[in-house]
Design a binder for these strands. Sequence first.
DNA 1: ATTTCAAATCTGATATATCAAGTTTCACAC
DNA 2: GTGTGAAACTTGATATATCAGATTTGAAAT
Lengths: 241, 241
Amino acid sequence: MTAANPSAASPSASGQAEFEKIDASFQMTVRDHVHRAMRSAIISGRFQPGQKINERNLAEQFGVSTTPIKEALRQLETEGLVEALPRRGVVIRFSMSWAEEMILARAALESMIAHLAAKRIDEKGKAALSVIANRMKEATASGDADSLIALNETFHDHVHRSSQCGYLAKLIERQQFYDASIRRVIHLDPTERQKALDEHVAIAEAIAAGDADKAERTMRDHVVRSGDTYLSIVFKKKGEV
Amino acid sequence: MTAANPSAASPSASGQAEFEKIDASFQMTVRDHVHRAMRSAIISGRFQPGQKINERNLAEQFGVSTTPIKEALRQLETEGLVEALPRRGVVIRFSMSWAEEMILARAALESMIAHLAAKRIDEKGKAALSVIANRMKEATASGDADSLIALNETFHDHVHRSSQCGYLAKLIERQQFYDASIRRVIHLDPTERQKALDEHVAIAEAIAAGDADKAERTMRDHVVRSGDTYLSIVFKKKGEV
DNA sequence: ATTTCAAATCTGATATATCAAGTTTCACAC
DNA sequence: GTGTGAAACTTGATATATCAGATTTGAAAT
């Protein structure tokens, strides 16, 4: 939940209340909209692998000029979702195997960050993590899919913060290729829900115990397993690793 | 060595010689030039963290219009080297801690790929890996820094190919933040040379033996250790993990 | 029918113009 | 001196125009 920016004021030594800088990314720019829309479309399979993308067409479809389109395409290119052939255009580069690798990338990065989190988390962070885990237990028991989706994000976000990593956290965001609608489907399955809970609890305990290696291992297994579940849904068959 | 595109012709069943597709990325576009130049400048510390970037200025310096500049900035943004604040401009986002995390990211990804390579490599690949390792031994013994730099790239490239991963390999390329000139400095040190050789040999053996876990571990240690060496040179002090 | 090749066309790459949000400056009131 | 606010200025965001490489087309040659 990157947008969760608590604007709580805290008293300062100078007597003047202090506020956090407002998040500049609140404002939506056209290129951002195009980027998100395209990303979502590619990831949910609305383009075929290898399909050519025409800038002018896109611009017309979105009702904007080509400038923000080009910028959005450049972002997608750097993310690895499309490939740009100089003077020849942009081609979709996303398939099941690509998705599999995105999951592996996320597993590698997220487990690295869990490792660091276990080493760097403080007491306050441990307490917060425990609170989140408890909320997850409740939501799992009551079958509250929406809460679980939100808590899942909160959980991973908290691990990221505890690791004190900025770059790694950003990098991981880009490996996320399933959206809320798919998550919902998954969290409606009680078995799946329980598995995820057990894994999250194990991760939280390992981090709180400062067991970096175990945190790393459990996080990795969690990402890979849940990733496979997503794969099997999105691509309608079981993906093996 | 991404540009190492052997254009060797091989005879086909139809009697007509077959050639590989020429690499479309050979052609240089302005935005690409700007992207590379900026990336290199940022990574080698020619911009201060937090420094603002002015599009018009850049365009003038490069002697081009702002269009390719914007595109290059978009790429740098997605790479995480700069941050774009909507309607406010682009700011440099690179520091020692950023570099440290880039190394960790590379360690996580490269070890994941080594793991897969150990599982997926075939006999031909093992032989090729062995050849590369032997060449490294020779170059290390004779102190041929240039060969070592090239072989190092060949080695990692071969591991990537053996893993049969496309996305992961691409992702790793972006975590590379030191260039040939720095590598040269390092490879001129005999102690450092020997360490790198030992590590490369260990990795090659683990992969050839199909020992995925060991391949992963040795690769990770190698990336982190050599990364620390780079850090200590670029930032003039020892970086800890 | 197949090959050749140049003209027509398409389309990405770049340049330039315009617009609007953000920042700075500075006169003025208190 | 401090605070206010409007005008001037900067600069990123977007739109439009131009250029050139790539692809397609189709007539002529074989």
